[in-house]
């Protein structure tokens, strides 16, 4: 499962562009610093490859594999 700390996000969009299964979409709500964090719209598709977790420059995404 995908946990996003929206307050750490800077809205660079790397997770949105590079997820192999296109799980993320950019949210239309801004966080307290004015960035658009990602939204895991297709979380059911996630296979837990952890690419987004490692590519995130801000430690904003944590993947938990049960």
């Amino acid at each position: 499962m995908i946990e996003i700390d929206e307050e750490l996000c800077k809205g660079c969009g790397i997770c949105v562009d590079f997820c192999p299964l296109k799980v993320f979409e950019t949210s239309d709500k801004i966080n307290s610093r004015g960035y658009y964090p990602p939204l895991p719209v297709k979380e059911k598709d996630c296979v837990g490859c952890r690419l987004c977790e490692l590519l995130c420059p801000e430690f904003s995404i944590i993947i938990i594999n049960e």
Partner: peptide, 21 residues
């Protein structure tokens, strides 16, 4: 000190992430 002072999309954050992992 988080979030980092790096610009949005900077590679330094990715290197830090990989290093911590």
């Amino acid at each position: 000190v988080l979030p980092t002072a790096f610009c949005p999309g900077c590679g330094c954050g990715i290197v830090l992430n990989c290093y911590a992992h």
